[in-house]
């Protein structure tokens, strides 16, 4: 006896249980009776291609228990469009569902479909920020945010401020750094240049340098700096003076950032006769500042044609 079998509204439906085909099925789950019943009604309805209000409720129940059901989401979308439902109400239901199932991606795919059809993103960026309160690095949510920006042309509005807000919360949030990169450089297809614009470049360099100043041992702004100069075609050496504030071969005991040392190794390697200095920086990383990657630092040396040295030898020298 269950919710559907006892409900006169569903009396006309003959449930269709799943057939496992034989003994010893793989990855069989101890389903609740509720799930088994909901699934058998869902299957019966889909087999009959019924698109009705009661089906919407059924899909809600099922999705709540199994949000990864790939065809039920599509079936729900088709039912919504068939009945010409108010899609704003659908978004409200989705808000609750998304907050409950943080890691599910079908929810975001469905939201995409609904908002695209609504042709209006009112309230969406606010909802996204609400999701970030729970997990500021949720991959699906960041992907959705990018889609919103592109679909509704939000480039010029408050996206930069938004990334600044997110980075004030956590300057190590690499997702927020990545989003900033997208906002600055993602419009190439529309003919808007990113880091090639000098004013823009200065603004972004200052922003990243400021973040390094607060957290020298934070890889995100270092990666961002490197990407700016590479994309703009500016020599890597333009970052030398800045990097030397955080790491110097003259003061090997007071390196403040392993990422600065890594960058300096690359800068030295490009200098005439700088390979030995690059090797020293890499040795220092292997021996002292980033020993977990000692094999990687040795590989970097070998890429420069330098012999690798054992950490013990470096320290003794």
């Amino acid at each position: 006896m269950g919710k559907y079998s006892e409900d006169p509204l569903w009396a006309d439906i003959e449930p269709l249980p799943t057939d496992e085909g034989g003994p010893n099925p793989l990855a069989a789950i101890a389903y609740s009776e509720e799930y088994e019943e909901t699934m058998s009604y869902m299957r019966a309805v889909m087999a009959a291609n019924e698109y009705s209000d009661r089906v919407l409720e059924l899909t809600e129940d099922l999705i709540d228990m199994n949000p990864a059901h790939y065809t039920v989401w599509l079936y729900r979308a088709k039912t919504l469009f068939h009945l010409d439902k108010d899609l704003r109400e659908e978004l409200e239901w989705l808000n609750e569902t998304a907050l409950e199932h943080q890691k599910n991606y079908q929810i975001w795919h469905h939201r995409n479909l609904i908002v695209d059809r609504l042709d209006d993103c009112e309230g969406e960026t606010e909802f996204v920020e609400q999701m970030f309160v729970k997990d500021a690095k949720n991959y699906h949510v960041w992907s959705y945010r990018q889609w919103l920006v592109k679909r509704f042309g939000l480039w010029e509005t408050e996206e930069l401020e938004f990334t600044e807000r997110m980075l004030r919360e956590d300057v190590r949030n690499n997702s927020a750094w990545n989003h900033r990169w997208y906002i600055v450089n993602g419009r190439e297809a529309e003919g808007v240049k990113g880091e090639w614009d000098e004013g823009l470049r200065k603004r972004e360099l200052d922003f990243a340098k400021n973040a390094v100043g607060k957290t020298p041992q934070n890889q995100s702004p270092w990666n961002y700096l490197r990407a700016i100069v590479r994309t703009a075609g500016v020599p890597l050496a333009s970052l030398k003076e800045f990097a030397e504030q955080y790491a110097s071969l003259d003061r090997p005991d007071s390196v403040r950032s392993s990422f600065a040392l890594d960058l300096l190794a690359d800068i030295f390697a490009e200098e005439e006769g700088g390979k030995d200095k690059a090797g020293k920086a890499l040795d220092l990383l292997a021996a002292k500042y980033d020993p977990i990657r000692k094999n990687y630092w040795a590989y970097r040396k070998s890429q420069l044609g330098l012999e690798s040295s054992t950490p013990e030898a470096v320290v003794a020298a």
Binding site: A27, A28, I29, S32, Y35
Partner: peptide, 22 residues
């Protein structure tokens, strides 16, 4: 034995769960 009911949300991923087990 049956996987615990918490796997219900992965019912539609059973073949990849099966692969992990095998």
């Amino acid at each position: 034995t049956l996987l615990p009911h918490q796997y219900t949300s992965n019912d539609s991923n059973r073949l990849y769960l099966a692969f992990f087990i095998i």
